[in-house]
Amino acid sequence: MGKGFCALFKKDCQMLSSGKFFLMAIGFLALYTAYVNLGYIRFMQMPPYNVYLYDPAGTQTEKSSLVQTVPSMEAMDTALLSDANGVGLDASAGEVRVVLYKGAEHVDHHRADYALFLLRPSTGSAPEIVGTNTPEQKARKEITCELLFFELSAVGFLGIAAVLFREKGMGVIRVHAILPLQKNLFLLSKLAVFLLSDLVFAVLLTLLNAGLADGAALLPAVLLQTAILSLIMALLGLLCALLLKDFRQFTLAYLIIAIFAATPVFLSANTSVKFDWIGWHPFYHVYMGLKNAYFGSATSPVYYAGAAAAILVLFLVVQFAFRREIGKEM
């Protein structure tokens, strides 16, 4: 049995490497790393509102250094037009008047009061810091988690199905029906190859983008979640490859999975836009598991039980489909 498994494993590795699966994974790894280090970290910055003051008489003597003085009302209008989140303070008529472009009501109140506060700044007690991450660490962990999820559930999934359809087209399943090997070995060797390649991908992506020291500490938890997601996606890919006629039909299923399944999850997990029904979305829980691993939060044992049950059910369904396919081929 061990020998048979090794032979199948070797064959699957060769299949993946000739299908340029590894090359594609390395390409995407390079692309993601470049995006995180050269693009994302720079864009994810949000400085406090700019405050512009028009004070021809120089009445505001205590103002903070964050306030920018403008020479005329026209200059303030131009500044506000190009920076609609900024706040203008007009002190030309003695009493200070706040000028701002309308945004969300609560934010407007805060912008106005914050601008007035900068005219008479006082140092209150500094906020207590309860977390351990810096903004950059958070941004890095967040984007690495998103990219890993995207790679495993969308890009990697496409690769898995492409390889499996190719094998199906070449009649490999037909050959397996007459091989003197246990039928499960075919599925197990496939799962092992994809699992291993996904784990290596996760290690490299995490170390390159979340930082060496930070990344290494996260790895055990991240690898566990990666294994869960990878097994689910590989089983789904196998199921698609067994049930659907050709790669063309698969692309329809793929679009539904990749676009309509992933978008609400990202919105709900990363922003304060929360949908009420998101708890029913199975990928939401898998994504949150991965995210909790990156941020060191605890994941409930119910989730692990659910994930294990899902993998088991999927495996049984795939096994059934595989046996049916072999029966069909014979």
Binding site: P127, I129, G131, N133, T134, P135
Partner: peptide
């Protein structure tokens, strides 16, 4: 007295620092 996580964008950190004043 305010408390933040420390990983927020600058705009939120500044807002938390200015809130008591």
């Amino acid at each position: 007295k305010t408390a933040i996580s420390g990983d927020e964008l600058e705009i939120f950190q500044q807002a938390a620092a200015a809130l008591p004043a």
